[in-house]
Design a protein around this nucleic acid. Structure first.
Lengths: 351, 351
DNA sequence: CTCTTTCCTGAAACCGCTTTCCTCCCCCCT
DNA sequence: AGGGGGGAGGAAAGCGGTTTCAGGAAAGAG
């Protein structure tokens, strides 16, 4: 019956169109790119044929002469994390509006993978690379990453959402200090003084900065710093934070408010608090970072730091494309976070 | 200071390498592709130069002669939905293992976008397309989609995770009936008879099938069907399910168990139940579909239908690549779901 | 020492499209 | 009517690889 056989046949080309239309390939190309005027009758004829054969120009061939692909590569740590998927979708939207496509790779925190992805993107001749999280953020492996970046052809602009010294990377950062300011201000305003900070890894830059700022702010508010209230979890998932919160409570250390390093961690922390019989926010307040949909999903809904993903994605893409087009763009751009107050934070329990 | 100026310079090519190594471009290519033996000393020399200049072959040029790009296009409804991000990552992993790259587009449920994405992928000369959700699933717009698919060059295999008649698509389905069997069996085993089904849209095939099966199963168990217990929400998000659950409870209709069409919906339902003073699972049991990380994040943790994302992704990719390589592959493959029992389901409240 | 084989390697064609040159033609102006 | 100007479109040269073809060198066989 010969069903499903590769109906083979090379795909059709502008030569085929040209021949049937009785013109030269160049003319077809002109119609395709709208790069020069073509006599209306021919133009029409050609367009009909394109329609008829469902012809699509070969991006490979195009890219070969164009020198650029109109594709932006994005390396994300893991799109399963809503933070990254939000940013990714925002990037995709912004890119599309500017006529670009995005190509996504997940580095999954694997050592070799990031390098491999970068090479792959280079092969694909992406016009720019946006790096979302991963080793860039890691204070330990940053040096290694710097090397990677510096080995990239200078013609490919790289944009990261973070901080990285020693390279020509464009950096679109979110003001980590400011975000901690917002949370602490909010909590202190509610009368909290025993504020825990849980989750994440201190060797990730943004987390490190938050911890630093946390200490500073306590001092500014004449609150003694209690190291036992700050627990990194080694991870950014709920299980890690859950374990840390348990450990803290079981040790008899009971804060009146907890800052979770992200929404995932908040989920773990909420579980631990609940299991220990504490109500949120009546007994203990809980606030977090990232304001992903998780924040709205938990009970109670989380008070959380918002980054405006749409804006972040746009900035990343515009920076990449701007650089690409030779525009003068600041190497460092800082975005300001905001605080979204929901149900999980309330007045400190009376002493 | 001339910092950041496009250091211009075309990127280096095999011709540059060839010249410096004193060989022909063909030889360089042979080293690159390892397609023929080259005298060890030359080979070494060439490899050194490649290393030195950090040369990466241009995938465009390669693809031009190769005829195929080793790239698989994936159109997902929305990667922000963990269901899709899980499947996507699984696909990416499976693809990489087979030497392929994946290119992700989000159709975001927008009408024109899906068509546009498909064209874009076609331009990029992807070797195959995997469609995850979106209009394919929609009974109303399926016909339109069929047209789209049939307009694709036959050389590009298409794989969908769903059901679609009238095309040459490969279909990797999850047994929707079986999944409902598992849930109902579980709930009835716990003594439930007033079982609500909430969320989703009935014009989405998988949801439609679930509802059908739900009715069948009730009948088989001599439980009268109460239409007021089945409420589609028009969406698959928490807000929609939250509203529907509220409406039901406010109307004085109180089931002993609720089946949520997905984890998102379950979150909304959990909130509604909690706000109405019902405890889960003591008063009302809650079970859901998809078993994403959300299921583990909610309190209590959700009993949920699991699809084995790793396996699903692998199947999708293997099907695509298999078809591509001309293997004989069944047009329809069925995957069996399993039930993961957690905290949210328990014995029916004593009457 | 000559004749095959076997290995290596270079020349050149080709993949499909863009783009630069340059004709060719038509129209208008003087 | 002749010349100039401008628009349309064809020929051909890339873009950067892969691959076929064939030739030259080295090596083994007789």
């Amino acid at each position: 019956m010969d069903v499903g056989k590769k109906t083979g046949g090379k795909s059709i080309t502008i030569y085929d169109i040209a021949k049937e239309a009785g013109v030269s390939p160049a003319t077809v190309s002109r119609v395709l790119t709208n790069s020069a005027r073509v006599r209306p009758e021919k133009k029409q004829k050609i367009q009909e044929l394109i329609e008829k054969y469902n012809f699509t120009p070969n991006a490979m061939a195009r890219g070969l002469s164009d020198t650029h692909s109109r594709v932006i590569g994005i390396i994300a740590a893991d799109v399963r994390n809503p933070f990254y998927s939000e940013v990714f979708v925002a990037c995709e939207l912004a890119a599309r509006r500017l006529g670009y496509t995005v190509l996504l790779c997940n580095s999954l925190g694997e050592a070799g993978l990031e390098r491999q992805q970068l090479e792959k993107l280079q092969e694909q001749r992406v016009d720019a690379v946006i790096q979302l999280g991963g080793r860039v953020d890691d204070l330990v492996s940053q040096l290694e990453y710097v090397e990677l970046v510096n080995a990239m052809p200078e013609r490919i602009p790289m944009v990261i959402n973070g901080k990285l010294d020693g390279t020509q990377c464009y950096q679109v950062q979110i003001n980590a200090r400011k975000s901690m300011d917002l949370l602490i201000e909010h909590l202190i305003g509610l009368g909290h003084r025993d504020i825990a900070l849980i989750g994440g890894r201190a060797d990730v830059l943004s987390t490190f900065e938050k911890i630093q700022r946390y200490k500073q702010l306590l001092k500014q508010n004449q609150i003694p710093f209690r190291p036992e209230l700050v627990q990194e979890a080694g991870h950014y998932n709920d299980a890690g934070a859950y374990a840390e919160m348990n450990r803290m409570l079981d040790a008899g250390i009971v804060p009146t408010a907890v800052i979770a390093i992200n929404d995932f961690s908040a989920a773990g922390i909420a579980r631990s608090l609940t299991e220990h019989g504490y109500r949120i926010p009546e007994d203990i307040s809980l606030v977090s970072y990232d304001n992903t949909y998780i924040a709205e999903m938990l009970i109670p809904k989380l008070t959380s730091i918002d980054y405006d993903y749409g804006n972040l994605g746009r900035k990343l893409v515009e920076t990449a494309i701007g650089a690409l087009e030779g525009k003068e763009i600041p190497k460092l751009q800082m975005l300001e976070p905001t605080l979204v107050v929901r149900e999980s934070s309330g007045p400190a329990r009376a002493l």
